[in-house]
Design a protein around this nucleic acid. Sequence first.
DNA 1: CGTTGAACCTGTTTGC
DNA 2: TGCAAACAGGTTCAAC
Length: 289
Amino acid sequence: MPELPEVETIVRGLRRTVVGRRILRVRLGKTDFMDDPAAIEMNLPGRRIEGIERYGKFMVVRLSETNGDKKAPGLLVHLGMTGRLAPVVTERPQEKHTHACFQLDDGRDLRYTDPRRFGRMAFLAEVALAEALAPLGAEPLEVSAEEFHKRLRERRARIKALLLDQHVLRGVGNIYADESLWRAKIHPKRLGARLNRKEASALRRALQEILRRAIALHGSSISDFVDAEGLPGDYQRRHRAYGREGKPCARCKTQIRRIIVAGRSSYFCPRCQRAPRGRSETRRGKRGV
DNA sequence: CGTTGAACCTGTTTGC
DNA sequence: TGCAAACAGGTTCAAC
């Protein structure tokens, strides 16, 4: 469900609705996806939510210090595929798959639900938070053209794999990778390092425009994604490649195809997005010397 | 290094 | 209708 635009949507909603609130009490359900559930239960009550930040697909709920024990502590949250984090009135019955319920001081709970439990949750102090986020790559909306191109040239994987690799860029997932490749007319199997400056530049621009637009429309709601206020996103109606197998390309009417690249379904237009030629980009490299 | 496939877990959709 | 297979917005790890 959640890629950068969806996480950004949630973060913005939470900033408006829960920052400043104090956590009174914690109730946990299944905890197998949490780093240290006991630490969450023990450390959150009594702390105030100071702010919420996004790093790629991660959210950091900044918490107040208590008696100087933990320095600049925060709750690190990743929504995985099906995670949701939203405030609801305490009276509301718990939805199925609610694994964390943080009772706030204003009659609401901040609840985390996640059927598949691919998400992640951890209470961490300043240093541990920084360590957890350090391996992440560049923020797609901030990366310069030069750095973007450089990061692609440093690696020898396919462009689709690079876009999905959170160590290269943070926050891009399967939908926005395919959408940006379609827009930039680049085949997902191309080697990232072989994109020329113009192509890299076009891809960065496509990615940024798509992400900005998706954020403006509150993300893509494919099954049941809803923001902090329970509203679905609208960007799924703008999808030009993702999930459109067999449907006509919006540019040339050729049927969109689905192939597996980097282990993920990849949708593309076989006419607009030319396949890499020769063996060089599909196999090992040049023939034996 | 890079790729592939499997694993983690549950729910929904598709196909026979 | 029923059941099984395929698939899902993500990440990680073993094996090649």
